[in-house]
Design a protein around this nucleic acid. Sequence first.
DNA 1: ACTTCGACCTGTTGGC
DNA 2: TGCCAACAGGTCGAAG
Length: 271
Amino acid sequence: MPELPEVETTKRGISPHIENRRVKEIIVRQKKLRWEVPNNLNRDLVGKIIFTVKRRGKYLLLASDNGTLIIHLGMSGRLRIVNKDLIAEKHDHVDVVLENGKALRFTDPRRFGCVLWEASDIDSHPLLKNLGTEPLHDEFESDYLFKASRGRSIAIKTFIMDSKIVVGVGNIYANESLFLAGINPKRPAGKISKAKYDKLVPSIKKILREAIAVGGTTLRDFTNSSGEPGYFKQSLNVYGRGGENCIRCGNGLKEIRLGQRSTVYCTQCQN
DNA sequence: ACTTCGACCTGTTGGC
DNA sequence: TGCCAACAGGTCGAAG
């Protein structure tokens, strides 16, 4: 499912139903996700209260007195609140059942997501400890990106998608941000000027903020709770528009592969 | 230390 | 209409 806006939207959606609720049961129907779902959850999380839901990059962190449940949605994961007795379907892999009769249900057809547990210091977890800055925090600014990029030969698009540099910039929004900033995605990160980074950082923040504001509904197969299609394409200037015309100059948009990922840009506007 | 690429999975799409 | 290859929002970890 997710890029950062979709994860943030999910967090906001589930938090009111989860925070300060006691866990009654954990149901694992399929433990083979990206990593195996640990066996200790019924021992360590059941009976505890989840007191906060936080997000770090694209990881959702459900904290209890005993430890933290770590959830990543991978490529196709979803989380929603259901009545605990709602019949589980094919890809409904994990339920966190609450004492109020509701359950947090994790669904993930491709199983690239994960449900993990950290008993002690969440920031020291191997998946989290090396993560870069949050793109919407103040410490993500052009001076940081500029300095981090010196000596790097990788394409700027690949660079801003590197979670050790900055978290949460996925393929769709990397394409969109570079269009907004007027930067060719293939340009080596280390050869881009400070002035360009001064444009790029606000572009990333703007794209992500706007996507969160509309509920992160940028996904091809997104439908809201009433079954209406989301805003896919309506808010996208380049992603998924290879061969179509640039909205700014009318030139044909070029589609290439960069780091095995679909990349679309305007050869006139982005250089 | 940096860069590239395979791997993990299922479902959907587009070409023949 | 059917079949099959290619591709899809992520990202880790091995290999070069």
